[in-house]
């Protein structure tokens, strides 16, 4: 699994962190997405896909 985040598109909603806190975080100052790992273990795949699905800015791309 490979994850790409687009920080320009990100609107800092933090929905991705709520869905997959082991994979996504937010910058303290402006809440923009930070990727903690771009190749997480397979058992997080469902959470990562959920994060991409609920992102209101469509800023997360997941390649299986």
């Amino acid at each position: 699994m490979k994850i790409i985040v687009d920080q320009d598109k990100c609107v800092a909603s933090g929905q991705c962190v709520t869905a997959a806190a082991d994979v996504f975080d937010q910058r303290d100052e402006d809440g923009i997405v930070v990727l903690l790992t771009d190749n997480p273990p397979d058992d997080l795949a469902a959470d990562v896909h959920q994060a991409a699905a609920v992102c209101p800015a469509l800023a997360i791309l997941v390649e299986d």
């Binding site: 800092a12 909603s13 709520t18 809440g31």
Partner: peptide
């Protein structure tokens, strides 16, 4: 103007 902190309070 506090996105990360707001999410934590959720």
């Amino acid at each position: 103007n506090a996105p990360k902190q707001t999410r934590q309070h959720r």
